[in-house]
Nucleic acid binder design. Structure first.
Lengths: 160, 160
DNA sequence: TATAATGTCGAAACCCGTTGCAAACGCCCT
DNA sequence: AGGGCGTTTGCAACGGGTTTCGACATTATA
């Protein structure tokens, strides 16, 4: 679930086709399959998971990874974190800018948005003559569930 | 204590020894070698580079990587980015909090500090019952050198 | 001091992601 | 339809980083 929907005029598939066109690349069966798969759900996903699901649809490992990179370049998805040495992506196109609180224990990703951050970064970038294109902000710590006391015996507290 | 430097009462080596103690781990020849090597210069470094230098000092690949993780856990170093699928680290202990502008083209890392960010994040985290332990903020784009026009033919502009 | 328990190490295997390459494909041209 | 040419694909190999495993070292137990 996300913060708020954003107006989307064309489908991801169409958007990707346009992107490919501008780079003189082709929309193939494999690439179409991958876009379908990626946008069939709005959850975060790990590249490796995706690639494995793709294997069942006659799309190879390398094509999977290659296309994920293209989707990122096209602005359809973005890499939000790296968990247990696996890359985690989420939809970017059609969704509002946000960042994440990441629980070190259970891995939960909590979305938040602070519009001040974009402005602050823009200012800093300008001061350094840097042309900002985007950012990734990962906040590490413990989510409320995980930072409560252990509770080793959650049930049958006083039944015996 | 000045703005740039942060008060450091004990050496990284000592700090690490304390950390190991709290986890019932031991300070060995290999771990000492690694701390020496890591803190012999204040520059950013890539794990792989380090591990290769360590090979010359009779420290294995696995021990190198394992100890880098321990150093991170101990708060002595932190991972600041991932470039070309290689992890980049820098000293954390004894250095003030900061983040980076990262040039997509040449890979330059430009440090900056915005104290507002810490406060903003603290507020957001509290709102979600999240116990924040740290963050990593990577700002992507082009540094001033790389975003100036291509200049493919730097010389002889109008000589012919 | 003997014995068990815990830590540590290096080698090799493994995992995720990338890349080089040859064969296959898509697309335009005639 | 057939030829030409750049693109795409899958395979296999590679690279960085992690994990497993057996041998060894250190500490605790007694």
């Amino acid at each position: 679930m996300s913060l708020e929907e954003v107006e989307v005029s064309v489908s991801p598939m169409e958007k990707f086709r346009e992107f490919l066109l501008t780079k003189n690349l082709r929309m193939t069966r494999e690439r179409a399959t991958i876009v379908e798969e990626v946008f069939s759900s709005h959850e975060h996903f790990e590249a490796e998971q995706l690639v494995q699901r793709l294997a069942e649809q006659r799309v190879s490992r390398s094509t999977g990874y290659r296309t994920v990179k293209l989707l990122e370049e096209a602005g359809l998805i973005r890499k939000v974190a790296r968990q247990d040495s696996r890359d985690v992506y989420e939809h970017d196109y059609g969704y509002p800018q946000h960042d994440h609180l990441i629980c070190k224990k259970c891995g939960e990703l909590i979305e938040f948005h602070l519009h001040e951050i974009g402005e602050l970064l823009e200012t800093v970038a300008r001061k350094h003559g840097f042309r900002m294109e985007g950012h990734r902000l990962e906040v590490f710590g413990l989510c409320d569930k995980c930072c409560r006391p252990p509770k080793t015996r959650p049930k049958k507290l006083n039944l015996l």
